[in-house]
Amino acid sequence: MSTHLLVLQSDFGLVDGAVAAMIGVALQEEPSLVIHHLTHDITPYNIFEASYRLFQTVEYWPEGTTFVSVVDPGVGSKRKSVVALTEKNQYIVTPDNGTLSYLKKYVGIKAVREISEVENRRKNTEHSYTFHGRDVYAYTGAKLASGHIAFEAVGPELKVEDIIEMPTVETIVTEDSVAGAIDILDVRFGSLWTSISRSDFYRLNPEFGDKFEVTIYNNDMLVYQNQVIYGKSFADVRIGQPIIYINSVYCVGVAINQGSFAKAYNVSVGANWHIAFKKI
């Protein structure tokens, strides 16, 4: 099943040598590895974002691909380092700090093992406590991706139900409305990606061209309220106009045609950002 593919994600950015060090460690382990990057621009310390980007990406990669995701504010603490095996037979090498939440919920995880740092840590790094991305995750990921170790050799098996999960906001559907949270931004374009699935939104029987009252709260503070058209794509409205659409992961999105909704209305993301769509 091994494909010799290693995909890296982190909040390290590319302004220093951290990512290059991870690549170097992987290539020392197996020079023939093919290494790709999911992103290294995760908002610093944002575990939820790391979890979402994995969910957004993994299904487009072949079976046997190994992903290393390092967004690790608890580095050096008692949080576990793990490898998860997904239902699609891909490996996710990451801290057990909530990063696996979205994959567990939407992709499925069939087994998880704790990385044994006795076996699967680079030699002579045991006195460095703050760069597990290089010394544990990239190293273990490279060993797995290259087939130098089997999944069983990662370390002791853990229970899948014990994986640490972040709380999620439930979708509330009424006769004429649906409500959830703003999970994440389509960062570059400033579109809002909500937690509301296409199937839940379609319980309102929307038609393209229908108008909905969109309400956004930050905790209890009203941030936005307006009537917005539901369209197929951004060009269904004039430049500068807002639109409701279904995004590439089949959830409800809100955008401004050729503009940034997030910037225009100072909207951010997280469980405290509530959004509702009411049919007019």
Results as ranks from 00 to 15, higher is better:
residue 194 T to L: 01
residue 86 T to I: 09
residue 212 F to T: 10
residue 227 Q to C: 07
residue 144 L to M: 00
residue 113 R to G: 15
residue 26 A to S: 15
residue 253 G to K: 00
residue 36 H to D: 02
residue 71 V to G: 11
residue 221 M to G: 04
residue 38 L to G: 13
residue 217 Y to E: 05
residue 144 L to H: 02
residue 55 F to K: 06
residue 217 Y to W: 00
residue 162 D to H: 14
residue 36 H to P: 01
residue 114 E to G: 12
residue 102 Y to I: 02
residue 213 E to L: 12
residue 43 T to S: 12
residue 231 G to R: 14
residue 105 K to L: 07
residue 29 E to W: 05
residue 275 I to H: 01
residue 191 S to V: 14
residue 112 V to N: 13
residue 80 K to D: 13
residue 257 N to T: 00
residue 28 Q to R: 12
residue 185 L to K: 07
residue 209 G to E: 06
residue 43 T to H: 11
residue 47 I to D: 08
residue 3 T to C: 11
residue 273 W to D: 06
residue 44 P to H: 09
residue 34 V to W: 02
residue 203 R to G: 04
residue 50 A to P: 09
residue 69 S to P: 08
residue 9 Q to E: 11
residue 192 L to N: 04
residue 170 E to V: 14
residue 111 A to W: 06
residue 203 R to V: 02
residue 106 Y to M: 00
residue 173 V to A: 03
residue 31 P to E: 03
residue 27 L to Q: 13
residue 10 S to P: 05
residue 201 F to T: 10
residue 17 G to D: 14
residue 253 G to L: 04
residue 110 K to W: 02
residue 183 D to T: 13
residue 86 T to G: 00
residue 121 R to D: 06
residue 76 G to A: 07
residue 189 F to Y: 11
residue 3 T to L: 08
residue 232 K to T: 11
residue 110 K to E: 07
residue 199 S to Y: 02
residue 26 A to T: 11
residue 42 I to V: 15
residue 117 E to Q: 13
residue 201 F to Y: 06
residue 189 F to P: 01
residue 149 I to S: 13
residue 97 N to H: 10
residue 106 Y to F: 10
residue 274 H to P: 05
residue 154 V to Q: 15
residue 148 H to F: 07
residue 102 Y to F: 04
residue 209 G to M: 08
residue 59 E to S: 09
residue 93 V to Q: 02
residue 150 A to K: 11
residue 126 E to Y: 03
residue 182 I to G: 02
residue 178 V to Q: 10
residue 258 Q to E: 07
residue 39 T to L: 03
residue 70 V to T: 07
residue 99 T to Q: 03
residue 135 D to S: 12
residue 213 E to K: 15
residue 71 V to S: 11
residue 24 G to C: 08
residue 140 T to S: 09
residue 249 V to M: 12
residue 121 R to K: 14
residue 33 L to T: 02
residue 174 T to Q: 02
residue 222 L to Q: 06
residue 219 N to M: 05
residue 275 I to R: 05
residue 204 L to H: 07
residue 199 S to E: 00
residue 205 N to R: 08
residue 72 D to Y: 04
residue 131 F to H: 05
residue 150 A to T: 06
residue 93 V to I: 01
residue 142 A to I: 10
residue 251 C to N: 14
residue 193 W to T: 06
residue 196 I to C: 07
residue 33 L to I: 03
residue 115 I to V: 12
residue 3 T to Q: 06
residue 270 G to A: 08
residue 162 D to P: 12
residue 203 R to W: 03
residue 42 I to T: 14
residue 142 A to Y: 01
residue 225 Q to K: 15
residue 155 G to M: 10
residue 190 G to A: 09
residue 3 T to G: 12
residue 157 E to N: 14
residue 184 I to M: 07
residue 53 R to Q: 11
residue 90 Q to K: 15
residue 241 Q to C: 11
residue 9 Q to T: 10
